[in-house]
């Protein structure tokens, strides 16, 4: 829908476009049904980062505080990328996997039901 502004050439600045992050891209990481973390979080990552590196280096920083973190079986972990089911090849980079700037990547672990089984 076109915006109603005083002038027809009204345009906003894209304040968070890719080139503003100094070579990194933003990826949001969430862990479904683990609401110890009040929300998904934002991480600036190099686009060439391999998925395995993300698992090894970023995930502990993101979710390591959770008592169930050590119980995650990464081979069985399910993923949702930008609202669609996603099966990552761990050896590929974010770019190769179509994990784009400001993509939301959600970890799903149905066997782990959170603190006291309450989704926390």
């Amino acid at each position: 829908m076109t915006i109603r502004a005083l002038r027809d050439d009204y345009h906003g600045e894209f304040k968070d476009s890719l080139e503003k992050f100094g070579g990194a891209q933003l990826v949001y990481l969430g862990w479904d049904k683990h609401q110890m973390f009040c929300s998904s979080r934002a991480f600036p990552l190099p686009p060439e980062m391999r998925f395995q590196e993300l698992l090894d280096n970023v995930m502990p920083e993101a979710f390591g505080q959770h008592p169930e973190f050590t119980q995650i079986d990464w081979n069985k972990a399910q993923w949702i990328l930008d609202n669609s089911a996603f099966q990552p090849d761990h050896s590929k980079s974010l770019t190769e996997l179509d994990i784009g700037h400001k993509s939301l990547l959600r970890l799903v672990t149905p066997e782990l039901t959170g603190y006291k089984g309450a989704g926390i």
């Binding site: 949001y28 969430g30 110890m36 973390f37 009040c38 929300s39 998904s40 979080r41 934002a42 991480f43 920083e61 993101a62 390591g64 505080q65 939301l104």
Partner: peptide, 9 residues
């Protein structure tokens, strides 16, 4: 408990 990192807004 203080969480790490920055939230998605």
């Amino acid at each position: 408990f203080y969480t790490t990192g920055l939230p998605q807004l």
